[in-house]
Computed example of a mutant assay.
Amino acid sequence: MNATAPTSDVRQHILDVAHPLMLRKGFTAVGLSEILAAAQVPKGSFYHYFGSKEAFGEAMLDAYFAGYLARVDVLLAAPGTAAQALLRFFDDWLDSQTGDEAQSRCLAVKLGAEVSDLSESMRMALARGTRSVAERLMRCVEACKADGSLPAETDAPMLALTLYQSWFGASLLAKISRDRAPLDIAMASTRQQLGLPKHT
Score class of each variant (00 low, 15 high):
Ala134His: 11
Phe89Lys: 12
Ala83Cys: 03
Ser149Cys: 04
His199Phe: 12
Asp16Arg: 15
Phe65Ser: 13
Gly31Trp: 01
Leu86Asp: 03
Ile185Glu: 06
Leu183Tyr: 05
Arg123Lys: 14
Asp9Ser: 04
Thr4Trp: 11
Asp16Ala: 07
Asp100Asn: 15
Thr162Cys: 12
Pro42Arg: 12
Leu126Asn: 08
Ser171Val: 07
Pro182Asp: 04
Ala38Glu: 04
Cys106Val: 06
Pro182Asn: 09
Thr7Glu: 00
Leu61His: 07
Ile14Met: 13
Arg88Phe: 09
Thr28Tyr: 08
Ser116Gly: 03
Gly57Ile: 08
Arg105Leu: 14
Ser189Asp: 15
Lys43Thr: 09
Arg123Gly: 11
Met122Arg: 05
Phe50Pro: 01
Pro182Ile: 01
Thr154Ser: 02
Ile176His: 11
Val10Asn: 06
Ala78Lys: 06
Glu58Gln: 10
Ile185Arg: 08
Leu36Ser: 04
Met22Asn: 09
Ala134Pro: 11
Leu163Ser: 04
Leu111Asn: 00
Ser116Pro: 02
Leu150His: 12
Met124Lys: 14
Arg136Ser: 04
Ser177Asn: 10
Gln12Trp: 14
Ala78Gly: 10
Val72Phe: 13
Gln12Ala: 14
Ser166Phe: 03
Gln97His: 07
Asp9Cys: 01
Val10Thr: 07
Asp91Met: 06
Asp9Lys: 01
Lys145Asp: 00
Ala170Asp: 09
Gln193Ala: 13
Asp16Met: 03
Cys144Pro: 03
Arg178Phe: 00
Glu54Trp: 13
Met124Ser: 13
Leu173Trp: 05
Asp95Glu: 14
Val109Gln: 04
Ala127Arg: 14
Val115Asn: 01
Ala188Lys: 08
Ser116Leu: 06
Lys53Asn: 06
Thr162Phe: 05
Ser52Lys: 02
Asn2Val: 13
Ala188Ser: 12
Leu21Ile: 06
Phe50Lys: 14
Gly31Ala: 03
Asp62Leu: 11
Asp16Tyr: 02
Leu161Ser: 07
Ala160Arg: 02
Cys144Lys: 02
Pro197Lys: 08
Gly129Thr: 14
Ala156Arg: 01
Ala37Ile: 07
Leu159Gln: 07
Ala38Gln: 14
Leu126Pro: 07
Thr7Asp: 15
Asp92Cys: 08
Ala3Cys: 12
Gln165Met: 10
Ser119Trp: 03
Asp100Pro: 14
Ala38Met: 09
Cys144Trp: 01
Ala102Ser: 13
Gly44Pro: 04
Ser45Val: 10
His199Gly: 14
Ala174Trp: 09
Thr190His: 04
Thr28Trp: 00
Ala188Cys: 11
Val30Gln: 03
Leu21Val: 13
Leu137Arg: 11
Cys106Met: 12
Asp92Ile: 08
Ala83His: 11
Leu137Thr: 00
Lys110Tyr: 06
Thr4Tyr: 04
Arg128Cys: 08
Leu86Ala: 05
Ala5Gln: 08
Ala85Ser: 15
Gly195Ser: 09
Thr154Tyr: 00
Ala102Phe: 10
Thr28His: 10
